[in-house]
Design a protein around this nucleic acid. Structure first.
Lengths: 338, 338
DNA sequence: CTGAAAGCGCTTACAG
DNA sequence: CTGAAAGCGCTTACAG
């Protein structure tokens, strides 16, 4: 139907094989041929057919990216960054949204498999589904953000150092009564952030009792629900730390709903930054992750896995972005070296 | 390398052709054969190869979706909805981010062409780039949200009715001095929303002078910049209407930056809803678009175009979501019928 | 209902 | 540097 390499070859007066080589920068062809073929291709509006090419080469130049919830700004950003990095490397990315649903995740994974992706970047949902286990055995895979014990390299922020820095900062400001809206304990990020907070608080001789921690699911509504319970405490906590931006937004709403002043009557801090956080009525102090670096490192690691190399990725430093929700004045503190 | 249809056929004791038909629900095969083949496929872990299939059938079962800015929540939502609708129809979608950059858009479009997508859904950037014009001639295409005069069906919200409802609502509340942060006038949505506001205001005997309208680019920063100029006016406007959610967020920040109370000293309203709008300190009154319906209609239209049918899509009704940024109490008003 | 055969559009050893 | 040939994994008329 459309223009094929044969058409180009004919117009250029060479064989299809030669046309193929001439179009390939690394193929051997005289510069005269190269020019004639390029010319013919241009005149005919030739566009290579990836299906034919990948059937022949067993490479699709396509990678998959599976995230739990594309509408969570952190993952939107991550997907954006991955797409950018991959495009720069000449790779196409197929983005899939697990959507908090194991079956949906597996359906999507099956599609990736049919497309014979060269490799997979995945932010695993809590437990690994059968489909995920299967694909991990079949394709080079790198996990981003979360470690689900899949036995693949994991590219993630140094959540521990980030949380330590945040706790230190809050304690230095005089906060003592901490309340935490944790992430799902079925995810490594949910666990690590909570454990790191506990640990660092203990270091400051602060103990968290059971009622001080409520587990959310990284979404807005769960932040709302958790905050309502946390702010029922008497006395009210000095501050609430949320394990992600969306839950923090929920906490902020509840603080106001109670007639309390955020940053004055109750502090708020969160993991993950958000383009809108600095324009909120109370700019939120956060531990920011660098999605660009996360994406680049992950893609690097995946490319190396595809090439059969072993990879080992160091945790990626976070940044403590001090704003005003803990009652401070604005500055940015790097905590790369913890 | 991986399991092929031949392997399945051998194990099942039939020819590859029969195996192919047995696996195809519409292919003719005895139920005994069907079972044996399905069994063999299961045991071998057979997964079809889309490259081979689409090379043969000239269908990729893949569509492209090109948006101007994936990180704008409206487009994130739209992409999510399109992906969901497409998955349900057994289609894979390749999402591309033009990223406010014509060259990036064309690079992405070229990739889609190499993949021989079955059709394209596009939210066109201002002017049509060469790559876009080309692809529109080559593949069935449907525009979503914006009309760039490409000569393809356009699936969009009824911005005009939505803006009329919003203006009527604001006027009924007593607002008279309007200021507008418009969308880029190079986009149809930017133009239609502004024209509709002007028109409806005139109907209420309100005229906008030049300084009352500032053109933004649908992003946060432009809302910030526009609001700073708009709020320099003396007297300050009764309200600011923003052409999208991100710019509205910027306006809200500036209102507070000036020490004014949103919804009390200055009203705010916007086009597009946003999951976070209802938890802001001042819940914003908006004209909400239904991205799910938009996506479904667009996919429907595209499928019909692919089938060679003519399509004609009616504008999709918006919803006026009354919150408190104009000084009201909360209710939702449908304005399906203007 | 089933099989043999052809062919989709490429790339790549193999010769020359 | 170039060409002829084979083949990647499917699907689908064509016979039977």
């Amino acid at each position: 139907m459309s223009v094929t390499l044969r058409d180009v070859a004919e117009l250029a007066g060479v064989s299809a094989a030669t046309a193929s080589r001439a179009l390939d920068p690394t193929g051997s062809a005289s510069s005269a041929t190269r020019e004639r073929v390029a010319d013919a291709a241009r005149r005919l509006g030739y566009v290579g057919n990836t299906a034919a090419r990948s059937l022949r080469t067993c490479r699709s130049d396509t990678i998959g990216l599976l995230v739990p919830d594309v509408r969570n700004p952190f993952f939107t950003d991550l997907a954006y960054a991955v797409d950018k990095a991959a495009s720069a490397a000449g790779l196409t990315v197929m983005i899939g949204n697990a959507d908090e649903d194991g079956a949906a995740q597996d359906r999507y994974l099956a599609a990736l498999e049919r497309h014979r992706i060269d490799g997979l970047l995945v932010v695993p949902q809590g437990g690994a589904t059968p489909g995920l286990r299967r694909i991990v055995e079949t394709f080079p895979t790198v996990a981003i953000d979360r470690d689900a014990g899949l036995g693949v390299p994991v590219v993630a922020s140094d959540s521990e150092a980030g949380m330590h820095a945040l706790v230190d900062h809050a304690v230095a400001l005089g906060h003592r009564r901490f309340a935490i809206v944790a992430g799902p304990q079925s995810t490594s990020t949910g666990r690590v952030r909570l454990d790191a907070a506990r640990e660092r608080l203990a270091h400051h001789d602060i103990r968290l009792s059971d009622g001080d921690v409520i587990e959310g699911d990284f979404r807005l509504e769960s932040g709302l629900a958790a905050a309502r319970r946390l702010l029922d405490h008497d006395p009210v906590p000095d501050l609430v730390v949320a394990a992600d931006a969306l839950m923090a937004l929920g906490v902020l709403a509840v603080i106001r709903e109670r007639g309390l002043r955020p940053g004055v009557d109750v502090g708020l801090a969160a993991f993950d930054d958000n383009p809108w956080f600095h324009v909120l009525d109370t700019p939120v102090t956060v531990v920011a992750q660098d999605t660009t670096v996360l994406a680049r490192r992950a893609l690097d690691a995946l490319l190396r896995r595809i090439a059969g190399e072993d990879v080992d990725v160091a945790p990626i430093p976070t940044t403590l972005v001090v704003r005003r929700s803990l009652g401070e004045t604005t500055t940015v503190k790097e905590n790369a070296h913890e």
